[in-house]
Amino acid sequence: MTFPIRFAALAAPLLMLFYGIARYVDGLDGDRGNGVAWDVGHTAFFVAFVLFAVLAVHLHRVVPVRARWQRHLRDGALVAALVGAAAFLWVTFTDLFPAVPTGLPDAAMIGLPVLFQVGMLTLLGQLVAARRLPVWSPLVMVFGFVLIAVNLDLLPFGSVVILCGLAPLATGSLRPVGP
């Protein structure tokens, strides 16, 4: 397994965990935003999604394909993951720099990040179908993102759940390609 997969699968959820803790610290005064914890936490979240995009690119490279439809599915999953990651990056950027207009309707700001989970779930699902990854891995990862979507205050817990889901990638236990 390549180093970028292991590093990104470990570092991205840990940076999200750091963001969740910084978000909690930022809210201790009863107000969230425009402070050191806010800026540092959002920067960590931004870097986390850069790493998630790196992870998606490298997963795309290791997904085995035997048929044209599998290649199209893999390629579409990568596009979805990258568009979703870019949406997360844009939302985070506009949180860090509120003077920058989002330029996107609210529905797009909410809906586009979902593409990241769809793309990642598909890439990981293809690895499950190829018996290179345990079936629970993508399900646990998605559950972590669902927790965060339900309530941002669950971000630290959801990040740990995502880390658990990506553990087979972070530990380098992605199974080799079989016959």
Rank of each mutant, 00 (worst) to 15 (best):
L55F: 02
R131H: 15
A11Y: 03
A86G: 13
G20I: 07
M120G: 07
V135T: 14
V128Q: 06
W69I: 12
P138C: 07
A9P: 02
H58P: 01
L89N: 02
M109D: 08
G119T: 12
V57W: 07
P64M: 06
C164A: 15
F116P: 11
M120H: 09
D106T: 12
R74H: 07
G125S: 12
R74Q: 11
F93I: 00
F49I: 10
L15S: 10
L163F: 00
A85G: 13
L112M: 10
L124F: 04
R61I: 00
F46M: 13
P156E: 00
T2R: 13
V36P: 00
Y24E: 06
T92E: 08
G41T: 07
T102Q: 07
D39I: 06
D26K: 07
V57E: 11
V160D: 01
C164N: 00
V177D: 14
S159Y: 01
L124Y: 02
H58I: 03
H60L: 00
G172T: 12
A80G: 07
G27W: 00
G178P: 02
V150P: 00
L121F: 15
L59G: 02
V100D: 04
G103E: 04
A108L: 14
P13F: 02
V40N: 03
V128M: 05
A149W: 06
Q117R: 04
P105E: 04
Y24I: 12
V40A: 15
D153S: 13
M141K: 05
G30N: 03
V135K: 12
V57C: 13
A22E: 14
L115V: 14
G125I: 10
S159M: 01
Q126F: 02
G178C: 04
L154V: 01
D39P: 00
G165E: 04
W90I: 05
A48S: 09
S159G: 13
F46P: 04
F3Y: 13
R23L: 09
V177Q: 15
A48R: 02
Y24A: 11
F46T: 13
G76Y: 05
G165Y: 01
V83P: 11
F46L: 14
A9W: 01
V57F: 12
A130W: 05
W69S: 12
L51C: 12
I5C: 11
D26I: 07
L78R: 09
R6F: 05
W38Y: 15
G33H: 10
V100C: 04
T171I: 11
F46Q: 05
V63C: 03
Y19I: 00
A56L: 09
L115W: 10
L155Q: 03
V177S: 15
L166N: 01
A80D: 05
V91A: 12
T92R: 07
V57N: 06
G172K: 08
L82S: 06
V83Q: 05
L96D: 05
V50N: 08
F7K: 09
G158S: 13
T43L: 14
V54C: 10
V25K: 04
M16D: 04
G125T: 11
F88Y: 15
G76P: 03
F157E: 09
A108M: 14
G35V: 08
P13A: 10
A22N: 13
S173H: 14
A107Q: 14
R23P: 00
D26G: 15
H42Y: 07
L82Q: 10
R132S: 11
